[in-house]
Design a protein around this nucleic acid. Structure first.
Lengths: 344, 344
DNA sequence: GCTAATCGAGAAAACGCTTTCTCGCCGGTG
DNA sequence: CACCGGCGAGAAAGCGTTTTCTCGATTAGC
């Protein structure tokens, strides 16, 4: 008797029958429309409770034209940075009754555009982290993704807020810090070549070099994970630098681990710095000097911006810029007298 | 002309008009129904391409009764364990064209049931991680959540696969390992009191104690994060144990960090072990001895099980049990001659 | 006491799609 | 030549809601 038509689930129609009213009235009651007679409303509520009726969100979404869901596209869910953004975003959105749908592109940037489009259509808005996508492609798809907020990317397309971390400034701060400690030979263990944030770091280093012509800065190829750092030990030792700026904390940790295995003392022989200040950074030995990025906050801000867009409020700020804060710990120390390159 | 009715988005009707056919035919073409004349199909495809038509997933979901989305409820997205499960789940599900919706309960177990219900209704299935929920409540809501797969919980409700890690066995393996190294005074830095997996560890320790009556095992209150471990330093030193089994890797790392600050040598003075083998475990100094749980694989398996349920295939295995693998690294070592308790 | 205004609830349309049902038209066969 | 079968496409129903529209009934005002 209670079991309903096709889907077998209890629908608004069942409640209507049970309460002896039309399903329109049930809908009114469920949505707190007060043009309903209190007696009837009570009857409907009783029927709904008894049947444990819960409105079908898909039906609601279709009628309302909104899903109360937002999407986030990330290149790699294994990366602590994106985990943190997701966390901040999810928390903030949940507070406003929104859920988040995740779309992991697994670093294949060719899929990002399609993935973003698909995710967007299921949601009321989208947060896009696509560090490897070309500017051209980004600009092309951005308008169709609106409401959209970008993380660590900017685009010429109008009305798209961007939340960017000033990686260039951060890397300069770190380099300055190392110079103050007496280092004159630095090396930058770069991130993925096509990474946008890596580009910003490189720009920052150019500025730094211009301001410090006497400091030697070697560029080393790298990546964004532990293993990259670990494998870079040889290259690092070979270049003779005493202050290493790793692309991020993960790389720095891998590098420190490799140096440790080689018996190289950090920071006695070589100073190592990271970037991001992931939760684990202060628990490494030695604790990692890094540039702290308020990344969870970034996720929260992303929601604020997105919410404004969804509600069509005039977004007061079209985006914001986050300054990393230098976090000096014990993986960086005074430079020793000039070292000679260690081979093999 | 192209702009459509209410939503302003391009719908199936626009394509139909443009191609000069009925919207039913457009639908047939889009879904690869081959009872359509090739000429007409081509015309429809051309129109769809020109209009950049993309079917509205909400409409599809309503008609099809499925969303191609699954949900996952986690108690804390900041916890590496759940991040790993999410990652594995997301990856596996993506391969089959499913997306995942996340619901973070932020450790408030009273919300978990409602949250799970809401998430479930938006999705085709649910993965539930609810370590703090009572058995009674779990059993009550489980049937209404079907298709459902449980992580690290089992329930009497029928047809609900469970993926559980044998924490009891894992903790015994670790304890055995420490005993073999000569430790006779152990301490267990417990997890959250109401945590199900903590209960399993305690059971394992009971078995261990029964088998090793001569080994002293002190129970210490704890939690599940870094800070818990860090704050437990005093209690650990006070109890005089030389082998510490931390609830998980996070707690172990916090503890090691605290011991390091106190100048206590690990493993020289005290051996510390973790649990989980999170990615960072092998990069701590000293590298952490722990019990490795194939947690990403657990997420993947969760999808396999869930998929079987969604497709109504007879799930060959109603669930599975995962054996942790002891991962001996350098945070555990031979016991020193009996230590005396250190006070203050 | 009758008309007009108001309020409350049912009927129906709309949201965007899939799918069954139906029908027209074609060719083939008796 | 007429009838039947089959195929292909349009009409329409259905998925589960919300919301507008409409209408009946009740009340107030003159």
């Amino acid at each position: 008797m209670v079991r309903k038509s096709a889907t077998g689930r209890i629908g608004i129609a069942d409640v209507a029958v049970k309460a002896g009213v039309s399903h329109a009235t049930v809908s009114r009651v469920m949505n707190g429309n007060y043009t309903v007679d209190p007696d009837i409303a009570a009857r409907v509520r009783a029927a709904a409770a008894e049947l444990k009726y819960q409105p079908n969100p898909v039906g609601r979404s279709l009628a309302l034209g909104k899903t109360d869901t937002i999407g986030i596209v990330v290149p790699d869910l294994a990366n602590p940075t994106f985990q943190a953004i997701l966390r901040g975003l999810s928390r903030a959105a949940a507070q406003d009754g929104y859920r988040v749908l995740i779309a992991d592109s697994f670093e294949v940037s060719s899929e990002e555009a399609i993935l973003a489009g698909e995710a967007r259509r299921r949601c009321d808005g989208l947060v896009l982290c696509a560090p490897r996508m070309t500017d051209a492609e980004l600009e092309e798809i951005a308008p169709s993704l609106h409401p959209l907020v970008l993380i660590n990317r900017i685009t010429a397309a109008a009305g798209i807020p961007s939340l960017v971390v000033d990686y260039g400034q951060g890397v300069q701060d770190i380099a300055e810090h190392l110079v103050e400690l007496g280092h004159t030979r630095l090396a930058f263990l770069a991130g993925p070549p096509r990474s946008a944030s890596n580009g910003l770091r490189l720009q920052g280093l150019e500025s730094f070099k211009a301001a410090h012509p006497h400091v030697e800065v070697t560029m080393l190829e790298g990546g964004s994970d532990f293993d990259t750092g670990h494998e870079a030990v040889d290259a690092v030792l070979e270049c003779g630098a005493t202050g290493i700026l790793a692309f991020n904390d993960l790389v720095a940790m891998g590098l420190m681990s490799g140096l440790h295995e080689r018996g190289i003392d950090v920071p006695g022989d070589i100073s190592v710095t990271g970037f991001d200040d992931i939760p684990f950074a202060k628990y490494t030995t030695p604790a990692l000097t890094t540039a702290a990025v308020p990344i969870t906050e970034l996720g929260e801000q992303a929601w604020q911006q997105l919410r404004a867009l969804i509600r069509k409020e005039a977004s007061d700020a079209p985006g914001s810029r986050y300054q990393p804060r230098l976090e000096v710990r014990s993986s960086s120390g005074p430079a020793r007298a000039a070292r000679t390159a260690v081979h093999g």
